[in-house]
Amino acid sequence: MPFWTFFGLQKGKATTPWPRDAVQTGQEGVFGMPRFEPERCAPECDACAEACPTEAITVRRSETEKERLAVDYGRCVVCQLCVEVCPAGAAQTSFDWAFGVRDRADLMLSQEGIAPEKAHGAQDARGEFRRSLHIRHVDAGSCNGCESELQALNNPFYNLHRFGIFFTPSPRFADLLLVTGPVTYAMREPLRRTYEAMPAPRWVMAVGTCAVSGGVAGGGYACGNGLEGILPVDVYLPGCPPNPSAIIEALLMFLNRVPPRVKGGRVVA
């Protein structure tokens, strides 16, 4: 056994400085939500909307030109098909993977501008937690991609503990319910009972596009459309799956420890 201790010490520090510094995030080359420049759209073109597997993109054919393209990043599975089919370069691959928001409306890109700031009743209570947060995770029917990235949070590279954020086995000790998956018919009740077992104040985070809106699996005979209409959600983090750096950023944003990055479907910070 001593040789493991020696080995560990010898290895030194492996942890990323993210999000304090946006270097060595571990996500070199990892695609994020596509960026859109609707002013470059070709007239009458709706190729991106046709190509999207989750109806995240809508193109209104007539109306005023001002409001032609609307994107719901809460439905985006980062497949890049819109980028591939766009003939005008209006849809482009980006590395905007840190896409956590408090307000579902902030995942909507439209040309009408940024959604007005909404009051967050829970914000003050969150301050009471200072640096510590305990999370209960529930897999409500995910593909295991989100779990794989959540498990990675405790590897030495992300080392979630350094923020005072912990996963807890019992919902009784949990402040935040972190849900993945589109919510299958059989997981709806266990999910609701886990939420009810948590003491107030309690919050809910939807991780991954499935939990936010249903993703590619949503609907059908066995699935719901994520947490929509099931639990009140305080943090949304779309992605398929969101990478561990994105999950860290969203958790710290929820704790008011980093400023929100995304407003009105655009990265502003």
């Binding site: 190509a51 597997p53 599975v77 497949c79 098909l81 897999d139 029917g141 995910s142 593909c143 295991n144 991609g145 989100c146 779990e147 794989s148 998956g181 589109p182 299958t184 059989a186 997981m187 266990p190 993703g215 590619v216 699996a217 609907g219 059908g220 005979y221 066995a222 699935c223 398929c240 799956p241």
Partner: peptide, 29 residues
């Protein structure tokens, strides 16, 4: 089968491009 999503049925009627994305999301790892 708590996690049964009915994935096989979700393929029905989909285009090949979309069906490939579905297949990628049956088991993430």
């Amino acid at each position: 089968f708590f996690k049964h999503r009915g994935m096989e049925k979700r393929f029905e009627g989909r285009s090949l491009a979309h069906a490939t994305l579905l297949a990628e999301r049956v088991s993430g790892v």
